[in-house]
Design a protein around this nucleic acid. Structure first.
Lengths: 98, 98
DNA sequence: TCCTCGTGCTACGGATTCCGTAGCGTTCGT
DNA sequence: ACGAACGCTACGGAATCCGTAGCACGAGGA
């Protein structure tokens, strides 16, 4: 799981997540990622391109490669888990508040 | 996917990955994580405990909560992907080396 | 009693990463 | 010629991470 080296960096997973739905230009991607600074976004994009999960199309805009798409699909169950988790965290916080 | 805020931190996913197999004490966990500094490890553990995916048992040693275990299971397909990915990266590097 | 060992964890200074703002170079449409 | 959108870079300050050293506590043995 050396890949965790890459994913354990800020915005890496988020970029994959945002690109699932389709291509996005640099600034569009930046907006989706809570206005992350272009410096870091470009760092992550270079790393993800080097890893072969993201590519820059000639017509402009970033897209997932087939590999990247397969990976993006694996994030879906994680998303489902995250929803249940968020609900539990809310109720837990509500419980501890009273 | 606010959870990506937590996972997009160094060693967070790695800690989950290492705890899948069972409980580990602080220093044992540290060794498994490439001798990560105790400062950061403790930071991650506090965050993961606050998120309710990891807990410290009274008898000592860190362990995944039921939530955390469910999450850890989702990392398995990701691990399978990572293996295929690592193989591809190797062949790609071998190709570009000649 | 004193020592040792293992437990979780903290202090501190330096290295690395991240961020916010500003702006460059190019292309494309009008 | 000009505006807009494209990808991206420069730079200084803030936040994060790291490596080393060591503290506090409890269990066990001599």
């Amino acid at each position: 799981m050396e890949i965790l080296e890459l994913f354990g960096r800020r915005w890496a997973l988020r970029v994959l997540w945002e690109l699932r739905a389709g291509a996005l230009p640099f600034r569009g991607l930046q907006e989706r990622c809570d206005a992350v600074s272009p410096t870091v976004l470009n760092d992550r994009l270079r790393e993800l391109r080097a890893a072969g999960v993201v590519e820059l199309q000639e017509s402009g805009g970033y897209v997932l490669t087939p590999d990247g798409h397969a990976l993006g699909g694996l994030l879906l169950p994680l998303s489902a888990w995250a929803e249940r988790w968020a609900r539990r965290v809310r109720t837990r916080r509500a419980r501890s508040a009273r």
